[in-house]
Amino acid sequence: MSAAEIDLRKKLERMSLKSPRPRLIDVIAADRRDGTYDLIYVFHHEGAIVDHRYVVNEDDDITSIADLYAGALCMEREIIDMYGLKFNGVTGGFLLDPSSPKNPLRQPRKEVAKDV
């Protein structure tokens, strides 16, 4: 388990202490065009969106959060299909057929990502 995931779990625990558990909305990945990816966990917490953003490397082993939220499984499978990232214990093949292009949302590595 990498530092990012431990951090995420800690944050989630802290959020759950004060009020009802946050509801997971989505796990978003986005290409930063330099071999790293944004991984954004979006939660619905106390009536508003709360997101936790991490930057992961192409070949990082990311720990799946499917044990916390069963619904996260499909979102992670989609990221595996679209970007070729690796999640522990999760397999891809969710949306893409063997005949489809591989990792279609990876973008060309021509420039360094702009600050966001």
Partner: peptide, 23 residues
Amino acid sequence: MYWVRGKNEVQLDRIKLRTPALV
């Protein structure tokens, strides 16, 4: 839910939609 990230161009850097049916 829609999430959009622009890049000062006509193109968008990333658009992600979380549709209700996905969950």
